[in-house]
Write a protein that binds this DNA or RNA. Sequence first.
DNA 1: GTCTATACAGTGATAGAC
DNA 2: GTCTATCACTGTATAGAC
Lengths: 218, 218
Amino acid sequence: MDAIERPGSAQERTVGRILTAAARLFAARGLAGVGLREITAEAGVNLAAVNYHFGSKERLLEALFLRRARPITEERLRLLALCREAPGRPPMLEQLLEAFLRPAFSLGLEAGVDGATFGRLRARLSVESEDLYRRILSQAFNASTRAFLDAVAAALPDLPRAEVEWRFHFMLGTMIYTMADSGRIQSVGDGLCRPGEVETALARLVPFLCAGFRAPPT
Amino acid sequence: MDAIERPGSAQERTVGRILTAAARLFAARGLAGVGLREITAEAGVNLAAVNYHFGSKERLLEALFLRRARPITEERLRLLALCREAPGRPPMLEQLLEAFLRPAFSLGLEAGVDGATFGRLRARLSVESEDLYRRILSQAFNASTRAFLDAVAAALPDLPRAEVEWRFHFMLGTMIYTMADSGRIQSVGDGLCRPGEVETALARLVPFLCAGFRAPPT
DNA sequence: GTCTATACAGTGATAGAC
DNA sequence: GTCTATCACTGTATAGAC
Protein backbone atom coordinates (compact mmCIF):
# COMPACT_ATOMS: atom_id res chain seq x y z
CA MET A 1 0.00 0.00 0.00
CA ASP A 2 2.81 2.32 0.87
CA ALA A 3 4.77 1.92 -2.32
CA ILE A 4 1.79 2.43 -4.59
CA GLU A 5 0.81 5.63 -2.82
CA ARG A 6 4.17 7.33 -2.53
CA PRO A 7 4.61 9.52 -5.59
CA GLY A 8 8.00 9.31 -7.20
CA SER A 9 8.61 5.75 -6.14
CA ALA A 10 9.88 3.45 -8.84
CA GLN A 11 6.61 1.56 -8.95
CA GLU A 12 4.48 4.66 -9.14
CA ARG A 13 6.65 5.98 -11.94
CA THR A 14 6.24 2.76 -13.92
CA VAL A 15 2.46 2.69 -13.43
CA GLY A 16 2.13 6.34 -14.37
CA ARG A 17 4.22 5.99 -17.49
CA ILE A 18 2.16 3.03 -18.62
CA LEU A 19 -1.09 4.89 -18.05
CA THR A 20 0.13 7.95 -19.93
CA ALA A 21 1.41 5.97 -22.90
CA ALA A 22 -1.69 3.79 -23.04
CA ALA A 23 -4.01 6.79 -22.89
CA ARG A 24 -2.24 8.46 -25.79
CA LEU A 25 -2.11 5.36 -27.95
CA PHE A 26 -5.66 4.17 -27.24
CA ALA A 27 -6.86 7.67 -28.07
CA ALA A 28 -4.93 7.77 -31.30
CA ARG A 29 -5.69 4.36 -32.69
CA GLY A 30 -8.46 2.71 -30.73
CA LEU A 31 -8.39 -0.16 -28.32
CA ALA A 32 -7.68 -3.10 -30.58
CA GLY A 33 -5.34 -1.15 -32.80
CA VAL A 34 -2.52 -0.95 -30.31
CA GLY A 35 -0.62 -3.78 -28.68
CA LEU A 36 0.98 -4.10 -25.29
CA ARG A 37 4.44 -4.15 -26.84
CA GLU A 38 3.94 -0.71 -28.32
CA ILE A 39 2.60 0.69 -25.07
CA THR A 40 5.47 -0.67 -23.01
CA ALA A 41 8.01 0.49 -25.57
CA GLU A 42 6.69 4.05 -25.47
CA ALA A 43 6.55 3.95 -21.68
CA GLY A 44 10.09 2.63 -21.55
CA VAL A 45 9.16 -0.35 -19.41
CA ASN A 46 9.20 -4.08 -19.85
CA LEU A 47 6.40 -5.91 -21.61
CA ALA A 48 5.53 -7.91 -18.51
CA ALA A 49 5.07 -4.77 -16.43
CA VAL A 50 1.52 -4.25 -17.67
CA ASN A 51 0.36 -7.66 -16.59
CA TYR A 52 2.27 -7.37 -13.36
CA HIS A 53 0.80 -4.03 -12.33
CA PHE A 54 -2.66 -4.24 -13.86
CA GLY A 55 -3.34 -7.93 -14.39
CA SER A 56 -4.40 -7.71 -18.04
CA LYS A 57 -4.82 -5.35 -20.93
CA GLU A 58 -8.50 -5.02 -20.16
CA ARG A 59 -7.86 -4.06 -16.55
CA LEU A 60 -5.37 -1.46 -17.72
CA LEU A 61 -8.21 0.01 -19.72
CA GLU A 62 -10.38 -0.10 -16.62
CA ALA A 63 -7.81 1.81 -14.54
CA LEU A 64 -7.48 4.37 -17.29
CA PHE A 65 -11.22 4.79 -17.56
CA LEU A 66 -11.86 5.16 -13.85
CA ARG A 67 -9.12 7.75 -13.50
CA ARG A 68 -10.90 10.02 -15.96
CA ALA A 69 -14.45 9.18 -14.90
CA ARG A 70 -14.16 10.19 -11.26
CA PRO A 71 -13.91 13.95 -11.94
CA ILE A 72 -17.08 13.73 -14.00
CA THR A 73 -19.02 12.13 -11.18
CA GLU A 74 -17.68 14.64 -8.65
CA GLU A 75 -18.46 17.64 -10.81
CA ARG A 76 -21.95 16.32 -11.46
CA LEU A 77 -22.70 15.99 -7.79
CA ARG A 78 -21.24 19.41 -7.08
CA LEU A 79 -23.50 20.99 -9.70
CA LEU A 80 -26.49 18.97 -8.52
CA ALA A 81 -26.11 20.48 -5.07
CA LEU A 82 -26.33 23.94 -6.62
CA CYS A 83 -29.62 23.26 -8.42
CA ARG A 84 -32.57 24.99 -6.84
CA GLU A 85 -35.83 26.62 -7.76
CA ALA A 86 -35.64 30.36 -7.56
CA PRO A 87 -37.00 33.33 -9.45
CA GLY A 88 -34.77 34.32 -12.34
CA ARG A 89 -33.24 30.87 -12.64
CA PRO A 90 -34.13 28.34 -15.34
CA PRO A 91 -36.75 25.72 -14.48
CA MET A 92 -35.53 22.90 -12.28
CA LEU A 93 -35.53 20.32 -15.10
CA GLU A 94 -33.29 22.46 -17.29
CA GLN A 95 -30.89 22.98 -14.39
CA LEU A 96 -30.75 19.26 -13.68
CA LEU A 97 -30.05 18.17 -17.25
CA GLU A 98 -27.44 20.85 -17.68
CA ALA A 99 -25.74 19.74 -14.45
CA PHE A 100 -25.81 16.14 -15.58
CA LEU A 101 -24.63 16.65 -19.14
CA ARG A 102 -22.08 19.43 -18.91
CA PRO A 103 -19.42 17.56 -16.92
CA ALA A 104 -19.66 14.57 -19.24
CA PHE A 105 -18.97 16.78 -22.23
CA SER A 106 -16.55 19.32 -20.82
CA LEU A 107 -14.45 16.88 -18.81
CA GLY A 108 -14.95 13.95 -21.11
CA LEU A 109 -14.20 15.57 -24.42
CA GLU A 110 -11.72 18.35 -24.00
CA ALA A 111 -9.65 18.14 -20.84
CA GLY A 112 -6.09 16.93 -21.25
CA VAL A 113 -4.37 14.86 -23.84
CA ASP A 114 -6.42 11.73 -23.41
CA GLY A 115 -9.68 13.58 -22.99
CA ALA A 116 -10.19 14.10 -26.68
CA THR A 117 -11.35 10.55 -27.14
CA PHE A 118 -12.44 9.56 -23.66
CA GLY A 119 -15.94 10.16 -24.96
CA ARG A 120 -15.43 7.65 -27.73
CA LEU A 121 -14.05 5.13 -25.30
CA ARG A 122 -17.02 5.67 -23.03
CA ALA A 123 -19.43 5.26 -25.94
CA ARG A 124 -17.84 1.99 -26.96
CA LEU A 125 -18.14 0.63 -23.45
CA SER A 126 -21.71 1.87 -23.19
CA VAL A 127 -23.09 -0.15 -26.07
CA GLU A 128 -21.33 -3.33 -24.99
CA SER A 129 -23.32 -5.81 -22.94
CA GLU A 130 -20.32 -7.69 -21.62
CA ASP A 131 -20.14 -7.98 -17.86
CA LEU A 132 -16.74 -6.36 -17.41
CA TYR A 133 -17.81 -3.18 -19.16
CA ARG A 134 -21.11 -2.98 -17.32
CA ARG A 135 -19.21 -3.29 -14.08
CA ILE A 136 -16.79 -0.53 -15.02
CA LEU A 137 -19.60 1.85 -15.98
CA SER A 138 -21.59 1.08 -12.84
CA GLN A 139 -18.57 1.60 -10.65
CA ALA A 140 -17.76 4.89 -12.33
CA PHE A 141 -21.17 6.46 -12.75
CA ASN A 142 -23.94 4.76 -10.79
CA ALA A 143 -23.69 7.02 -7.77
CA SER A 144 -24.15 10.27 -9.66
CA THR A 145 -26.52 8.90 -12.28
CA ARG A 146 -28.90 7.46 -9.72
CA ALA A 147 -28.98 10.76 -7.85
CA PHE A 148 -29.98 12.56 -11.06
CA LEU A 149 -32.59 9.98 -11.98
CA ASP A 150 -34.28 10.56 -8.63
CA ALA A 151 -33.94 14.32 -8.91
CA VAL A 152 -35.52 14.31 -12.37
CA ALA A 153 -38.36 12.12 -11.10
CA ALA A 154 -38.93 14.59 -8.26
CA ALA A 155 -38.97 17.49 -10.71
CA LEU A 156 -41.65 15.73 -12.78
CA PRO A 157 -44.07 14.54 -10.08
CA ASP A 158 -46.87 13.82 -12.54
CA LEU A 159 -44.80 11.50 -14.71
CA PRO A 160 -44.97 7.79 -13.81
CA ARG A 161 -41.65 6.39 -12.64
CA ALA A 162 -41.46 3.95 -15.57
CA GLU A 163 -41.80 6.81 -18.01
CA VAL A 164 -39.07 8.74 -16.20
CA GLU A 165 -36.72 5.79 -16.51
CA TRP A 166 -37.45 5.36 -20.20
CA ARG A 167 -36.84 9.02 -20.92
CA PHE A 168 -33.72 9.04 -18.82
CA HIS A 169 -32.54 6.09 -20.87
CA PHE A 170 -33.25 8.09 -24.03
CA MET A 171 -31.19 10.93 -22.62
CA LEU A 172 -28.27 8.60 -22.01
CA GLY A 173 -28.55 7.53 -25.63
CA THR A 174 -28.37 11.06 -26.99
CA MET A 175 -25.49 11.90 -24.67
CA ILE A 176 -23.42 8.86 -25.49
CA TYR A 177 -24.06 8.98 -29.21
CA THR A 178 -23.11 12.64 -29.29
CA MET A 179 -19.91 11.99 -27.35
CA ALA A 180 -19.05 9.18 -29.73
CA ASP A 181 -19.00 11.72 -32.57
CA SER A 182 -18.95 8.95 -35.14
CA GLY A 183 -19.42 11.22 -38.15
CA ARG A 184 -22.63 9.44 -39.09
CA ILE A 185 -24.87 12.53 -39.16
CA GLN A 186 -22.34 14.43 -41.27
CA SER A 187 -22.40 11.61 -43.78
CA VAL A 188 -26.18 11.64 -44.07
CA GLY A 189 -26.93 15.33 -43.67
CA ASP A 190 -25.48 18.58 -44.95
CA GLY A 191 -22.81 18.86 -42.26
CA LEU A 192 -24.78 21.38 -40.21
CA CYS A 193 -24.63 19.20 -37.09
CA ARG A 194 -21.12 18.75 -35.69
CA PRO A 195 -21.39 16.77 -32.46
CA GLY A 196 -17.81 17.61 -31.51
CA GLU A 197 -18.71 21.21 -30.68
CA VAL A 198 -19.36 20.97 -26.96
CA GLU A 199 -21.17 24.22 -26.29
CA THR A 200 -23.38 23.89 -29.33
CA ALA A 201 -24.23 20.32 -28.45
CA LEU A 202 -25.22 21.28 -24.91
CA ALA A 203 -27.26 24.25 -26.08
CA ARG A 204 -29.21 22.00 -28.47
CA LEU A 205 -29.49 18.99 -26.21
CA VAL A 206 -31.03 20.56 -23.13
CA PRO A 207 -34.12 22.09 -24.77
CA PHE A 208 -34.66 19.02 -26.91
CA LEU A 209 -34.51 16.67 -23.94
CA CYS A 210 -36.56 18.88 -21.63
CA ALA A 211 -39.34 18.98 -24.21
CA GLY A 212 -39.20 15.20 -24.44
CA PHE A 213 -39.31 14.78 -20.67
CA ARG A 214 -42.33 17.07 -20.48
CA ALA A 215 -44.33 15.27 -23.17
CA PRO A 216 -47.62 13.92 -21.81
CA PRO A 217 -47.29 10.33 -20.58
CA THR A 218 -48.55 7.69 -23.00
CA MET B 1 -21.50 -14.55 -61.51
CA ASP B 2 -23.42 -17.70 -62.28
CA ALA B 3 -21.93 -19.91 -59.61
CA ILE B 4 -22.34 -17.38 -56.85
CA GLU B 5 -25.98 -16.84 -57.70
CA ARG B 6 -27.14 -20.41 -58.17
CA PRO B 7 -28.44 -21.64 -54.82
CA GLY B 8 -27.30 -25.08 -53.87
CA SER B 9 -23.98 -24.82 -55.62
CA ALA B 10 -20.98 -25.92 -53.62
CA GLN B 11 -19.73 -22.36 -53.31
CA GLU B 12 -23.06 -20.96 -52.26
CA ARG B 13 -23.37 -23.67 -49.69
CA THR B 14 -19.98 -22.86 -48.20
CA VAL B 15 -20.60 -19.12 -48.16
CA GLY B 16 -24.03 -19.59 -46.64
CA ARG B 17 -22.78 -21.91 -43.92
CA ILE B 18 -20.06 -19.47 -42.97
CA LEU B 19 -22.52 -16.59 -42.80
CA THR B 20 -24.94 -18.56 -40.66
CA ALA B 21 -22.29 -19.78 -38.26
CA ALA B 22 -20.66 -16.36 -38.00
CA ALA B 23 -23.99 -14.66 -37.39
CA ARG B 24 -24.81 -17.02 -34.55
CA LEU B 25 -21.42 -16.79 -32.92
CA PHE B 26 -20.99 -13.03 -33.29
CA ALA B 27 -24.44 -12.64 -31.80
CA ALA B 28 -23.64 -14.90 -28.89
CA ARG B 29 -20.22 -13.66 -27.93
CA GLY B 30 -19.44 -10.43 -29.72
CA LEU B 31 -17.05 -9.68 -32.51
CA ALA B 32 -13.67 -10.06 -30.82
CA GLY B 33 -14.83 -12.94 -28.67
CA VAL B 34 -14.97 -15.48 -31.48
CA GLY B 35 -12.17 -16.64 -33.74
CA LEU B 36 -12.18 -17.74 -37.33
CA ARG B 37 -11.30 -21.30 -36.34
CA GLU B 38 -14.46 -21.62 -34.32
CA ILE B 39 -16.60 -20.19 -37.09
CA THR B 40 -15.14 -22.48 -39.73
CA ALA B 41 -15.41 -25.48 -37.43
CA GLU B 42 -19.11 -24.85 -36.79
CA ALA B 43 -19.69 -24.26 -40.50
CA GLY B 44 -17.83 -27.46 -41.33
CA VAL B 45 -15.48 -25.73 -43.75
CA ASN B 46 -11.78 -25.15 -43.90
CA LEU B 47 -10.16 -22.28 -42.03
CA ALA B 48 -8.93 -20.67 -45.22
CA ALA B 49 -12.44 -20.54 -46.71
CA VAL B 50 -13.26 -17.29 -44.93
CA ASN B 51 -10.32 -15.43 -46.39
CA TYR B 52 -10.89 -17.03 -49.77
CA HIS B 53 -14.54 -16.05 -50.05
CA PHE B 54 -14.63 -12.82 -48.05
CA GLY B 55 -11.09 -11.53 -47.99
CA SER B 56 -10.84 -10.95 -44.25
CA LYS B 57 -12.71 -11.34 -41.00
CA GLU B 58 -13.82 -7.73 -41.18
CA ARG B 59 -15.26 -8.11 -44.64
CA LEU B 60 -17.13 -11.20 -43.47
CA LEU B 61 -18.71 -8.94 -40.90
CA GLU B 62 -19.54 -6.45 -43.63
CA ALA B 63 -21.29 -9.06 -45.77
CA LEU B 64 -23.24 -10.25 -42.77
CA PHE B 65 -24.29 -6.74 -41.87
CA LEU B 66 -25.40 -5.72 -45.33
CA ARG B 67 -27.49 -8.86 -45.74
CA ARG B 68 -29.58 -7.94 -42.73
CA ALA B 69 -29.60 -4.18 -43.27
CA ARG B 70 -31.15 -4.15 -46.73
CA PRO B 71 -34.64 -5.28 -45.58
CA ILE B 72 -34.65 -2.46 -43.03
CA THR B 73 -33.95 0.16 -45.68
CA GLU B 74 -36.57 -1.29 -48.01
CA GLU B 75 -39.25 -1.45 -45.36
CA ARG B 76 -38.49 2.11 -44.29
CA LEU B 77 -38.94 3.43 -47.80
CA ARG B 78 -42.13 1.41 -48.24
CA LEU B 79 -43.59 2.90 -45.06
CA LEU B 80 -42.38 6.38 -45.99
CA ALA B 81 -44.38 6.20 -49.20
CA LEU B 82 -47.49 5.47 -47.14
CA CYS B 83 -47.11 8.54 -44.91
CA ARG B 84 -49.61 11.26 -45.69
CA GLU B 85 -51.60 13.96 -43.99
CA ALA B 86 -55.24 13.01 -43.69
CA PRO B 87 -58.02 13.46 -41.17
CA GLY B 88 -58.09 10.68 -38.60
CA ARG B 89 -54.40 9.91 -39.07
CA PRO B 90 -51.63 10.87 -36.65
CA PRO B 91 -49.70 14.07 -37.42
CA MET B 92 -47.13 13.78 -40.17
CA LEU B 93 -44.15 13.90 -37.79
CA GLU B 94 -45.44 10.98 -35.75
CA GLN B 95 -46.01 8.97 -38.91
CA LEU B 96 -42.50 9.69 -40.16
CA LEU B 97 -40.72 8.75 -36.96
CA GLU B 98 -42.76 5.59 -36.61
CA ALA B 99 -41.96 4.65 -40.22
CA PHE B 100 -38.28 5.29 -39.63
CA LEU B 101 -37.94 3.54 -36.30
CA ARG B 102 -40.22 0.52 -36.57
CA PRO B 103 -38.28 -1.39 -39.23
CA ALA B 104 -35.01 -0.86 -37.37
CA PHE B 105 -36.50 -2.42 -34.26
CA SER B 106 -38.74 -5.10 -35.69
CA LEU B 107 -36.36 -6.33 -38.38
CA GLY B 108 -33.22 -5.52 -36.45
CA LEU B 109 -34.09 -7.07 -33.14
CA GLU B 110 -36.42 -9.99 -33.53
CA ALA B 111 -36.44 -11.51 -36.98
CA GLY B 112 -34.55 -14.75 -37.41
CA VAL B 113 -31.75 -16.37 -35.47
CA ASP B 114 -29.20 -13.67 -36.03
CA GLY B 115 -31.67 -10.85 -35.63
CA ALA B 116 -31.68 -11.04 -31.87
CA THR B 117 -28.42 -9.16 -31.66
CA PHE B 118 -28.15 -7.46 -35.01
CA GLY B 119 -29.13 -4.37 -33.09
CA ARG B 120 -26.13 -4.77 -30.83
CA LEU B 121 -23.85 -5.24 -33.79
CA ARG B 122 -25.26 -2.14 -35.40
CA ALA B 123 -24.82 -0.16 -32.21
CA ARG B 124 -21.18 -1.18 -31.94
CA LEU B 125 -20.51 -0.10 -35.49
CA SER B 126 -22.40 3.14 -34.96
CA VAL B 127 -20.19 4.48 -32.18
CA GLU B 128 -17.00 3.59 -34.01
CA SER B 129 -15.31 6.30 -36.02
CA GLU B 130 -13.16 3.96 -38.09
CA ASP B 131 -13.50 4.39 -41.83
CA LEU B 132 -14.54 0.83 -42.63
CA TYR B 133 -17.51 0.99 -40.29
CA ARG B 134 -18.60 4.40 -41.49
CA ARG B 135 -18.52 3.07 -45.03
CA ILE B 136 -20.60 0.03 -44.12
CA LEU B 137 -23.24 2.14 -42.38
CA SER B 138 -23.41 4.66 -45.19
CA GLN B 139 -23.75 1.95 -47.78
CA ALA B 140 -26.50 0.26 -45.80
CA PHE B 141 -28.55 3.18 -44.56
CA ASN B 142 -27.77 6.49 -46.24
CA ALA B 143 -30.44 6.23 -48.90
CA SER B 144 -33.33 5.72 -46.51
CA THR B 145 -31.98 7.92 -43.75
CA ARG B 146 -31.45 10.89 -46.04
CA ALA B 147 -35.00 10.55 -47.35
CA PHE B 148 -36.35 10.70 -43.82
CA LEU B 149 -34.15 13.61 -42.83
CA ASP B 150 -35.61 15.61 -45.71
CA ALA B 151 -39.15 14.48 -44.96
CA VAL B 152 -38.82 15.53 -41.33
CA ALA B 153 -37.44 18.89 -42.38
CA ALA B 154 -40.42 19.36 -44.69
CA ALA B 155 -42.81 18.45 -41.89
CA LEU B 156 -41.22 21.10 -39.65
CA PRO B 157 -40.97 24.07 -42.02
CA ASP B 158 -40.34 26.58 -39.24
CA LEU B 159 -37.33 24.73 -37.84
CA PRO B 160 -33.93 25.78 -39.22
CA ARG B 161 -32.19 23.05 -41.12
CA ALA B 162 -29.28 22.93 -38.66
CA GLU B 163 -31.67 22.34 -35.81
CA VAL B 164 -33.37 19.57 -37.78
CA GLU B 165 -30.05 17.84 -38.30
CA TRP B 166 -29.10 18.11 -34.64
CA ARG B 167 -32.42 16.68 -33.52
CA PHE B 168 -32.26 13.95 -36.11
CA HIS B 169 -28.83 13.12 -34.73
CA PHE B 170 -30.33 12.93 -31.24
CA MET B 171 -32.98 10.57 -32.57
CA LEU B 172 -30.30 8.30 -34.01
CA GLY B 173 -28.68 8.26 -30.57
CA THR B 174 -31.85 7.18 -28.79
CA MET B 175 -32.53 4.55 -31.42
CA ILE B 176 -29.06 3.05 -31.42
CA TYR B 177 -28.65 3.12 -27.66
CA THR B 178 -32.03 1.44 -27.23
CA MET B 179 -31.16 -1.24 -29.78
CA ALA B 180 -27.86 -1.86 -28.00
CA ASP B 181 -29.83 -2.83 -24.89
CA SER B 182 -26.70 -2.68 -22.79
CA GLY B 183 -28.45 -3.11 -19.47
CA ARG B 184 -27.14 0.22 -18.24
CA ILE B 185 -30.51 1.74 -17.34
CA GLN B 186 -31.53 -1.38 -15.45
CA SER B 187 -28.37 -1.13 -13.41
CA VAL B 188 -29.03 2.48 -12.45
CA GLY B 189 -32.81 2.50 -12.18
CA ASP B 190 -35.48 0.25 -10.74
CA GLY B 191 -35.76 -1.99 -13.78
CA LEU B 192 -38.89 -0.30 -15.07
CA CYS B 193 -37.30 0.45 -18.44
CA ARG B 194 -36.49 -2.65 -20.48
CA PRO B 195 -35.17 -1.53 -23.87
CA GLY B 196 -35.52 -5.03 -25.29
CA GLU B 197 -39.31 -4.76 -25.45
CA VAL B 198 -39.82 -3.54 -28.98
CA GLU B 199 -43.42 -2.38 -28.85
CA THR B 200 -42.98 -0.61 -25.55
CA ALA B 201 -39.82 1.06 -26.77
CA LEU B 202 -41.55 2.35 -29.90
CA ALA B 203 -44.57 3.55 -27.98
CA ARG B 204 -42.32 5.54 -25.64
CA LEU B 205 -39.85 6.75 -28.22
CA VAL B 206 -42.19 8.36 -30.73
CA PRO B 207 -43.95 10.81 -28.37
CA PHE B 208 -40.67 11.64 -26.63
CA LEU B 209 -38.91 12.43 -29.89
CA CYS B 210 -41.81 14.27 -31.46
CA ALA B 211 -41.95 16.58 -28.45
CA GLY B 212 -38.23 17.18 -28.78
CA PHE B 213 -38.50 17.92 -32.50
CA ARG B 214 -41.29 20.40 -31.83
CA ALA B 215 -39.43 22.31 -29.13
CA PRO B 216 -38.94 25.95 -30.08
CA PRO B 217 -35.61 26.55 -31.84
CA THR B 218 -32.89 27.97 -29.66
C1' DG C 1 -12.18 -22.18 -59.46
C1' DT C 2 -12.65 -24.38 -55.09
C1' DC C 3 -10.75 -26.33 -51.20
C1' DT C 4 -6.98 -28.21 -48.13
C1' DA C 5 -3.00 -28.36 -45.25
C1' DT C 6 0.39 -25.83 -43.43
C1' DA C 7 3.37 -22.02 -42.25
C1' DC C 8 3.97 -17.21 -40.55
C1' DA C 9 4.20 -13.09 -37.94
C1' DG C 10 1.70 -11.14 -34.60
C1' DT C 11 -0.92 -11.04 -30.02
C1' DG C 12 -1.70 -11.26 -24.64
C1' DA C 13 -0.31 -13.87 -20.84
C1' DT C 14 2.92 -16.32 -17.60
C1' DA C 15 6.39 -19.33 -15.18
C1' DG C 16 10.56 -18.99 -13.29
C1' DA C 17 15.34 -17.03 -13.08
C1' DC C 18 17.65 -13.18 -11.09
C1' DG D 1 10.01 -6.48 -8.17
C1' DT D 2 11.70 -6.88 -12.59
C1' DC D 3 13.04 -9.20 -16.72
C1' DT D 4 13.75 -13.00 -20.12
C1' DA D 5 12.00 -16.70 -22.55
C1' DT D 6 8.33 -19.01 -23.91
C1' DC D 7 3.48 -20.46 -24.34
C1' DA D 8 -0.99 -20.92 -26.70
C1' DC D 9 -3.53 -18.51 -29.78
C1' DT D 10 -4.94 -15.14 -33.40
C1' DG D 11 -5.83 -13.54 -38.46
C1' DT D 12 -3.66 -14.04 -42.75
C1' DA D 13 -1.08 -15.92 -46.79
C1' DT D 14 0.27 -19.43 -49.95
C1' DA D 15 1.55 -23.83 -52.34
C1' DG D 16 -0.51 -27.40 -54.19
C1' DA D 17 -4.40 -31.15 -54.50
C1' DC D 18 -8.78 -31.91 -56.73
